[in-house]
Write a protein that binds this DNA or RNA. Structure first.
Length: 344
DNA sequence: GATTAGGACTATT
DNA sequence: AATAGTCCTAATC
């Protein structure tokens, strides 16, 4: 799944259908400039429908809540409403593990857990998309689909997610028309699962957008997904020669697994989301500091689906880069500070 | 006690 | 084969 959590760019995790606890109220009270008010009303927006889908998907993936990492929803804090996006307060990593920071603006434990869920779910769905493309011999971009492709996709989605058959409800539609349809139109054609199908298609559209950073994303949900999952689907920059402008690092497509150094750059490119955990000390020289080793390791573990990842292992991988000339320690060695050998 | 360095081995692709 | 994950010892901060 995409990267995880800490992110917190729009839309916030509060879009998920949260348990009926006091959480919703606290979220609304704590809503800052970045935070949108969560609407407790029945799913009326595509995003809310999608959120419901995430949870149902999660249920399928992980029947027993909290099995991942074995810790359940009670976990570290990760995020706060940043006052200055580029200003990254140093967090005491000691306090992170057991840290229960409920200060205003910080995410609650439930949110963190949900973010992890979102990241994992989105990652799994994106993997499914890759698989489906190969299996069905269709493109990742739904707008390219022929009516036949649309039918293939429908059948696959029904089967994959055990949805009730939609029959001929979408029979004559091509990909472009399908993409142009609102959730309501999906519901009209398929009252039983139109919303779910629309949510699936939304993910396909977004997943496709992950391959093209220049293309505008169709929805806030897609923006959220892009923030969190860039690189999850397609990252192909290989070696240490390529440039690493903001526009280039995660705009590639090849299906190659992401490398740690790429992942670190990804995080570094989003200081607003991850600046608390890793940030540039000198971007021109490629010098960065891991402010919260445990969190960076946790994010890496999520990305690679390695629940047992920790900083000890992550740092071992970084050290392997010394020989390869990808990352090194800066001239003046500091703890948790590394330097990309080929900054641009 | 956390971090750093690196050897050795295994797993995955 | 390349890369990363795992486990380890030892040194250092």
């Amino acid at each position: 799944m995409g990267s995880a959590s800490p992110g917190l760019s729009a839309p916030p995790p509060s879009r998920l259908l949260l348990p009926d606890t006091g959480l919703q109220n606290s979220l609304e009270k704590g809503s800052g400039a970045e935070r949108r008010v969560w609407s407790p009303s029945p799913p009326a927006t595509p995003e809310q429908g999608l959120s419901a889908f995430y949870l149902s998907y999660f249920d399928m993936l992980y029947p027993e809540e909290g099995t991942w990492g074995g810790k359940g929803p009670v976990e570290e804090d990760q995020e706060e409403a940043p006052k200055e996006p580029e200003q990254c307060p140093i967090i005491d990593s000691q306090a992170q593990g057991a840290g229960l920071d409920y200060s205003p603006g910080n995410l609650t434990l439930e949110e963190h857990s949900l973010e992890q869920v979102q990241s994992m779910v989105v990652g799994e769905v994106l993997k499914d998309i890759e698989t489906a493309c190969k299996l069905l011999n269709i493109t990742a971009d739904p707008s390219d689909w022929s009516p036949g492709n649309v039918q293939k996709w429908l059948l696959w989605t029904e089967h994959q997610y055990r949805l009730p058959p939609v029959g001929k409800a979408f029979q004559e539609l091509g990909g472009k028309e399908l993409c142009a349809m609102s959730e309501e139109q999906f519901r009209q054609r398929s009252p039983l699962c139109g919303d779910i199908l629309h949510a699936h298609l939304d993910i396909w559209k977004s997943g496709w957008c992950l391959c093209d950073s220049h293309q505008a994303l169709p929805s806030a949900t897609a923006t959220w997904m892009k923030e969190r999952t860039s690189g999850a689907l397609h990252v192909c920059a290989v070696g240490s020669e390529e440039t690493w402008n903001d526009s280039e690092v995660d705009s590639s497509c090849s299906g190659q697994p992401i490398h740690l150094w790429q992942f670190l750059k990804e995080l570094l490119l989003k200081p607003h989301s991850y600046g608390r955990f890793i940030r540039w000390l000198n971007k021109e020289k490629g010098i960065f500091k891991i402010e919260d080793s445990a969190q960076v390791a946790r994010l890496w573990g999520i990305r690679k689906n390695r629940p047992a990842m920790n900083y000890d292992k992550l740092s071992r991988s970084i050290r392997q880069y010394y020989k390869k000339g990808i990352i090194r320690k800066p001239d003046i060695s500091q703890r948790l500070v590394y330097q990309f050998v080929h900054p641009v």
